[in-house]
Nucleic acid binder design. Structure first.
Lengths: 375, 375
DNA sequence: GTACCTCTTGAATCATATA
DNA sequence: GTATATGATTCAAGAGGTA
């Protein structure tokens, strides 16, 4: 059975008695209860300090369930920085000399976290981008869709060269090319998302196990100790156990601890490491028409026609087409000129290649073959 | 002919005489020579403070041509922070109140830049990841392949809501889905890369024009002023000119200035027609519901329903709707009958056209197209 | 079983013009 | 400055219901 320890217990248990447990309490106090240089890797998912204003509604008027928990509120950047500095310093002491730390965040907090890491003499090895396959849209159309989060991976010390990085495993898992710093994963939803009896999500920001699996497979060895100072629903612990690593979690909220303990108990460790890697080879990557312009395959001002030259349109620099007083995407304008509701602009619009007309889809194929090497 | 100005000239030229020029000199001093609130967008590619220790060789023992220029050297994080603070403050004064700034960097410097932006009360709108199709591999196999750089897009002020974001154009250019925060582009190479007579690259970190094109198309209007305080080889200027925007560059090194001037001279601006930016409903003129009644498109007494005929209302002669004992504007009543606090009456309410239900928005479109013929 | 449709939801710094 | 009225705005998945 999994268990959790009070701060006093964490301090007094026999050496390593805190392995594979959750320590209940404030993050810094709990870290202070652990011995020097005792963990191999830290994965930290601290509060993001979102600073949300009012409420936000979707276009269908439904309310967005925002992260408004008390633990995500800070009075100022200074307060957030002081908090960050305190827990990172405590982490530093607990890390083995060749240990590394991962911190995940968004643009709200990650820059402050990164600067603090550098100030405390951690040495950044990579920043890794988690690209979400299914991020929440920007409902008001005022910004780019916020489709990623950032992880910083850093060693405890600039001179430490002995940190674990399973380069060959990563490369083998990635079609025999180096694992890049941009990773593609879905957000945590469906059956993986922990819910209470009423179907309400237990934790507002549960991370996907696939993300933690890659982190752990990349930067730890079997039997290593992975500490998570903001344990939440216990994703780090569940994945560590499954992958044959030890975990230590720190968490304040009893509700999260209860959920995490039950979750981890249900995990069956893998006999053999059979980490499945999500190859980003989805059906076909989406290519923006804009990309053809940006990559010089088609110039703004080019005239496109349909296959029989009945309709024509001019390519604008913003990636839209214009025809007479109408304008829009390749699809919208294709539909418009034909008086239809819908149209596949990729196959409808053609460009002149010598005397021949070719569909712009041919140019998309060029872009896709360049992209194919990536995902 | 393009030209460059000395600091003294930049200070003394007639108003806007510094448009489409390169100012030679230190970045902060040159910014100080420009008027308050005079530029729309800033794109900055500051020194990355790479701090490479020693030299790096590829597996075949060839030497990696690293960025080791004098301008990329800083004694400490403190020195880099002071530098960052100084040029960002100078940028802040020069930006229009609704202006925005883009800064690009890597994990070496972007966290310090981001934190400083926040400290100076810039308001981060997005962090945007440039995913490189063809990044340099990690030669030692000790880290993930560093396959991206990060751009921060921020408004001058947290309360400034009037910044330019061409949402509809970005969406139309992206297969009619929102543009995401992760962008895929090749690094600058081949014919685009500026080289000297010996074939040596002129600038170590020349950015691809495609990247700048998306930045400028997303966040400026034709005729806007784009300032680049670290002009280098002039990518920002070349793309701004091509896209019908004004540029101002600041650069210290005469070699870079010479290369940039020649490069920009060779750029042919696109025609006005191709530069028109697609704008959505937000930019359409307002039409009062009353206008539909006055122009005879809908008669008082007409019964409107929602798309599924769950709710109905009657059109009154004063341009309001009534339903039972409730009455109000098309929006208020739409909200009221659904028990919501907001509703777009134009798309909610439908009228019967034969057997079919059509949104009253279709009638608004008729009014708008009639209005368009007038001007 | 399957195909199709509807509804829900996810770390979000998310409007603007006029009075 | 504030208050009010207009009316613009979403992508991918999964769950569950219906034909």
């Amino acid at each position: 059975m999994s268990r959790f320890l009070s701060l006093a217990e964490a301090r007094s248990v026999r050496p390593n008695g805190w392995l594979d447990t959750i320590i209940k309490g404030d993050c810094v106090a709990a870290l202070d209860a652990l011995p020097d240089q005792s963990v191999d890797v830290i994965f930290a998912d601290p509060p993001y300090n979102l600073q949300l204003g009012g409420t936000l509604h979707r276009p269908d008027q439904s309310l967005v369930d925002a992260v408004d928990d008390e633990w995500d509120q800070f009075a100022s950047f200074e307060a957030y920085d002081a908090f960050t500095r305190a827990w990172l310093l405590a982490c530093r002491r607990v890390l083995k000399p060749n240990g590394t730390i991962w911190v995940i965040g968004s643009y709200h907090n990650i820059f402050r976290v990164g600067a603090t890491l550098q100030d405390l003499n951690f040495w950044i090895l990579n920043d890794v981008v988690w690209r979400k396959t299914n991020p929440m849209p920007n409902f008001k159309g005022r910004r780019f869709q916020n489709a990623h989060e950032t992880m910083i991976w850093a060693s405890r010390d600039p001179k430490a060269k002995g940190y674990t990085f399973n380069y060959d495993a990563m490369k083998a898992a990635n079609d025999d090319v180096q694992m890049r710093s941009d990773w593609l994963f879905p957000i945590c939803s469906g059956g993986e998302r922990l819910k209470d009896a009423d179907g309400k999500k237990i934790h507002p920001t549960q991370k996907p196990e696939a993300l933690l699996a890659r982190v752990i497979m990349a930067s730890t060895k079997p039997g290593d100790i992975v500490l998570d100072p903001f344990f939440g629903s216990g994703t780090t612990g569940a994945v560590a156990k499954r992958l044959g690593r030890h975990f230590v979690g720190i968490e304040r909220e009893q509700d999260y601890i209860d959920a995490a303990l039950a979750r981890i108990d249900a995990v069956e460790p893998l006999g053999k490491q059979t980490l499945t890697v999500l190859s980003g080879k989805k059906a076909e990557p989406r290519v923006a028409f804009n990309t053809l312009i940006e990559s010089g395959l088609i110039a703004p001002g080019t005239v496109l026609t349909d296959a029989r030259r009945r309709y024509s349109a001019i390519v604008r620099a913003d990636g839209t087409l214009a025809s007479g007083s109408d304008a829009g995407s390749i699809h919208r304008l294709g539909a418009k000129v034909q008086g239809l509701d819908a149209c596949n602009g990729w196959t409808f619009w053609h460009y002149a290649d010598g005397k021949e007309l070719k569909p712009i889809d041919a140019l998309r194929a060029v872009v896709r073959s360049d992209m194919a090497k990536l995902d």
